[in-house]
Design a protein around this nucleic acid. Structure first.
Length: 301
DNA sequence: TACCAGGTTAGCG
DNA sequence: CGCTAACATGGT
């Protein structure tokens, strides 16, 4: 894998195959809710304050982007591309565990993204007792109602026909913005009973940040040991074991966390006699969980 | 129409 | 403790 720019100064990843990073799998496997597929190989999403457009060419093994070269560290960080997942995966002893072996093969190319912690917390509170298309819609509405406009790097230059969704180009709202727009959020975002959870959390964090000006709530949470992080998360109203595990895995990049939702429950019952054992999958068990989740959802076994 | 969706809470015994 | 109804909403 190496980085370069095209003749218009846009960042390109070269020599990257689908087994290392598959945009299709990673951006549509239920760990992130802010990406949209614009055409057969172009994805658009909002990361921080920027609108990213990514085009994966599976024959050339390249990913073209609308980013500037200076954004290279952000791109590598977001897709966790400085880590070789295979090193840990290959250490596992999965002799007779056919479902895991099949899932690893089926899911290779999935990355555990390094997403914004606050956004991940809210997104997975929304995810409870909900389905992925509806989660995505609620988040779009939440951003439209309460967020600020995102920047589009190199807007008019992104090869291909000029494709991009004109709607949903808003940043994820801050806790303060959510508190400020709570009425519209309750009325217009199809959040149901989850709206109260999110607004309460936004209010608590916003108050915390007013008191402790040196560091923010999320900055502090990131520095805690993982058992303390879990403790803090489980005290949040509306966060139970499953959502806390998702926040640990997708928001705090604690790859040993193995969220158990209805799909994984189904996997456990079908392939593991109701007794799936996350510890067996080592310190990247969360990644294995994502491979399994992808496998069962896409093959609808 | 009844059931489901990347669950959690509150209230019961 | 463990068990379970209720929780909002939109899609099928």
């Amino acid at each position: 894998m190496r980085l370069d720019t095209d003749n218009k100064g846009r960042l390109i990843i070269l020599d990257i195959d689908e087994n290392t990073l598959s945009l299709d799998k990673t951006l549509d496997c239920g760990e992130t809710f802010r990406w949209y597929k614009l055409s057969s190989n172009i994805w658009q999403g909002i990361v921080g304050n920027q609108v990213w457009m990514l085009k994966q060419d599976k024959k050339e093994n390249t990913i073209h982007t609308n980013l500037n070269f200076e954004d290279k560290a952000k791109l590598l960080e977001y897709f966790d591309l400085n880590t070789d997942y295979n090193i840990e995966i290959n250490k596992l002893n999965l002799n007779d565990d056919n479902f895991a072996l099949e899932s690893i093969n089926c899911g290779k190319g999935i990355r555990i993204l390094k997403q914004d912690l606050w956004e991940t917390m809210v997104s997975f509170i929304i995810s409870q007792r909900n389905n992925i298309p509806k989660i995505k819609k609620s988040i779009v509405k939440l951003c439209d109602v309460a967020g600020s406009s995102a920047e589009v790097p190199n807007p008019e230059k992104f090869g291909m026909p000029y494709l991009y969704r004109s709607e949903s180009l808003m940043m994820f709202p801050t806790p303060e913005q959510i508190v400020k727009h709570q009425k519209e959020i309750r009325e217009n975002c199809s959040l149901g009973y989850r709206a109260d959870y999110i607004i309460k959390l936004a209010r608590d964090i916003s108050l915390f940040n007013q008191r402790y000006v040196s560091k923010t709530y999320t900055e502090i949470l990131k520095t805690l040991p993982s058992n303390k992080q879990m403790e803090v998360l489980l005290k949040i109203h509306g966060v139970g074991p499953k959502v806390a595990n998702c926040i640990m895995l997708f928001g705090l990049h604690r790859l040993e966390n193995f969220p158990i939702d209805v799909w994984v429950e189904r996997i456990s019952n079908t392939y593991y006699k109701g007794n799936i054992n996350p510890k067996k999958y080592g310190k990247y068990s969360g990644l294995i969980q994502q491979y399994m989740f992808y496998n069962i959802r896409n093959n609808k076994i």
